[in-house]
């Protein structure tokens, strides 16, 4: 196993955007110098935020930001899948449907009619869905936004010809390694870290804030136990539902937790 590029020639990489805020692309851009180092080892053929535009070309690695939210998205994701080696979904929108997935629980068409004078000009699907609902996804990077170092690690793993490392542990593991006292234990605030996937470096708890779950569900997320503890901390059932119905509202584990609370079946 060589430490140098496992495949001769530079891999071709594209960064595609679907329904999203561009924040994950910006995380990539914000890498600065590291991105320049990387640019010597890959060919960035399509990355609208950075300049290169060639959305239809075939690539070795395609990063996909955003959720599938419009009829046009439905066709475009199939085209990208067909022309990409590895397809990597990045960010909450691409992995769970994103903040716009909140509309899945609402009557979207009625809203559009109330807000726009020409609702027929709006072409939105009824539901906002993750990339994996439409095509095979090779790897998912969760987060809102994803962290730049995570993206680099994925590209680097590809360059080395190894599988990218996944981290499905809870945010608590990162909090404790960095020595931040638990905000829920010291301040009684409802922190989602115990059910949320690591990767952010415990950013919010580092500032004394509660985690709000933007990295999506961790493995073995015991949402029942956490919801019960939130109740003990004084949150109303509606407030607990909102904790789970935020950035990753459509992630199955968070959605199930919220639905259970809504129907009052939580014991």
């Amino acid at each position: 196993m060589s430490l140098q590029t496992a495949h001769p020639g530079k891999p071709r990489v594209a960064v595609h955007k679907f329904s999203s805020c561009d924040g994950c692309q910006l995380s990539f851009l914000n890498l600065g110098e590291a991105l320049l180092t990387l640019a010597e080892r890959i060919d960035l053929v399509h990355f609208a935020e950075a300049g290169p535009l060639d959305p239809d070309t075939g690539v070795d690695v395609a990063f996909v930001e955003g959720s599938v939210s419009t009829p046009e998205d439905l066709e475009r994701i199939q085209h990208i899948r067909a022309h990409s080696g590895l397809l990597i979904a990045i960010g909450a929108c691409a992995t769970s449907g994103g903040i716009q997935g909140l509309r899945n629980q609402a009557k979207g068409a009625e809203w559009v009619a109330q807000i726009y004078s020409h609702p027929e000009a709006i072409a939105s699907l009824e539901r906002s869905t993750p990339i994996s609902s439409h095509v095979k996804v090779d790897f998912e990077l969760w987060g809102c936004p994803v962290s730049g170092p995570q993206m680099l690690a994925v590209v680097n793993a590809r360059l080395l010809g190894v599988a990218p490392r996944d981290n499905v542990d809870k945010v608590c593991t990162e909090c404790k390694r960095q020595g931040y006292p638990c905000v829920m234990v010291t301040h009684g605030i409802a922190c989602m870290g115990q059910v949320t996937r690591a990767g952010c470096g415990a950013l919010c708890p580092s500032l004394g804030r509660d985690c709000y779950g933007c990295y999506g569900p961790a493995e073995n997320a015991n949402t029942d136990a956490l919801a019960m503890q939130f109740g003990h901390l004084g949150l109303t059932p509606e407030a607990i539902v909102r904790r789970f119905q935020s950035i990753n509202s459509q992630a199955p584990v968070f959605l199930a937790a919220a639905n259970k609370l809504r129907t009052g079946s939580h014991d």
Binding site: D169, K170, R177, A225, L226
Partner: peptide, 28 residues
């Protein structure tokens, strides 16, 4: 139990660890 691992991180006798490699971006 939330399986968050906080008990093990604050436990003064727990010693479990993981090891992992972080390759530099230039491959060197």
């Amino acid at each position: 139990c939330l399986a968050c691992g906080n008990c093990t991180a604050v436990c003064p006798t727990c010693f479990c660890h993981a090891e992992a490699d972080t390759p530099a971006l230039d491959g060197a």
